[in-house]
Amino acid sequence: MPRIIKNTQIVEDHWQVLTLAEGETPEAVALPAAPTLLPLAVWLARRNEIVAAGLAPGVWLDAGEGPEALADDLDRLAVIGVNFPKFTDGRSYSSARLLRERYAYRGEIRALGDVQQDQLFFMRRCGIDAYALRADKDIDKALAGLAVFSDAYQAAVDQPQPLFRRRTARGQEAA
């Protein structure tokens, strides 16, 4: 069974990721009974059928798809995947941050695709809490990479106050 990093631990991944073959329509795809991350198009086309069947739904967003399409369904989704089709495509960072900050999503946000160790710290800053690394990457080294930086200057999802405000607050408490 594949492994992922989730909440700074290596765990077995019980979710599968469904992708549409070229030319395949969302209505034609067979829905698996196992926990599955569905493409956004399948979720939007078959939402009622999926919910009525009692399937454990999860959805993944491709880099060009925004989270606003899921705004009314967030309480139904245990996992939302954000796809990084290549290392240099950063659009999914924005999707993760919007899910956390604008839509207050508290479930798992999982990085999918071309996920590498160098990105994990920055992904966590944007609200991503699970990482499905590329198959050719060492998951143990990647986990260690999450601890490379001990603090960050800027505010982000994982630390809403910038460092200068945290230092000021500590100074006022000491006085």
Rank of each mutant, 00 (worst) to 15 (best):
R46S: 02
T36M: 05
V42C: 06
L37S: 05
N48Y: 10
P57M: 04
D73M: 06
P57T: 04
P67K: 02
I50P: 00
L37G: 01
L38E: 00
A69T: 11
D62Q: 05
G66F: 04
A69H: 05
D62T: 12
N48E: 15
D72S: 15
V51R: 12
L61K: 04
G66N: 08
W43F: 08
D72H: 14
L74Q: 14
G66R: 00
A71R: 02
D73T: 12
I80L: 05
D62C: 06
L74T: 14
L61I: 07
T36H: 04
I80V: 15
A69Y: 05
A78W: 00
V42E: 04
P67M: 02
L74E: 12
P57E: 06
D62P: 08
L55E: 06
D73I: 08
L70C: 07
D75C: 14
L37A: 03
N48K: 11
R47A: 14
L61N: 02
L77C: 13
D62E: 11
L55K: 09
D62S: 08
A52H: 13
G58D: 01
T36N: 06
P57Y: 06
I80Q: 02
E65Y: 03
L40Q: 03
T36V: 05
L70F: 00
D75Y: 14
P67W: 00
E68L: 09
D73E: 04
A56Q: 12
E68C: 04
A41I: 02
V51D: 01
R46V: 07
L38A: 01
A52Q: 13
V51L: 15
E49W: 10
L38P: 00
V59Q: 01
L44A: 14
L55D: 06
A63P: 09
E68R: 08
P57L: 10
P39H: 09
A45G: 07
D72L: 15
D73N: 05
A45T: 13
V79A: 05
T36K: 10
L61F: 08
P39G: 10
A56T: 12
P67C: 01
A53Q: 14
W60D: 01
R47G: 09
V79E: 06
D62V: 01
N48S: 15
E65W: 01
V59E: 00
A56L: 13
A56Y: 04
L55S: 09
D75I: 13
L40A: 15
G58W: 03
L37E: 07
L55F: 03
P39F: 07
R76D: 15
L44Y: 02
P67A: 10
T36Q: 14
L55T: 11
G66A: 06
A52G: 09
V79F: 11
T36E: 13
V42H: 00
V51G: 10
R76T: 15
P57Q: 08
R76F: 15
R47L: 14
A53C: 12
R76Y: 15
D73Y: 04
A69D: 02
V42W: 03
V59S: 00
L37C: 05
I50T: 08
P67F: 03
G64L: 12
E68S: 07
P57S: 13
R76H: 14
E49D: 14
A71W: 07
A53K: 04
G58E: 02
P39E: 06
A78I: 02
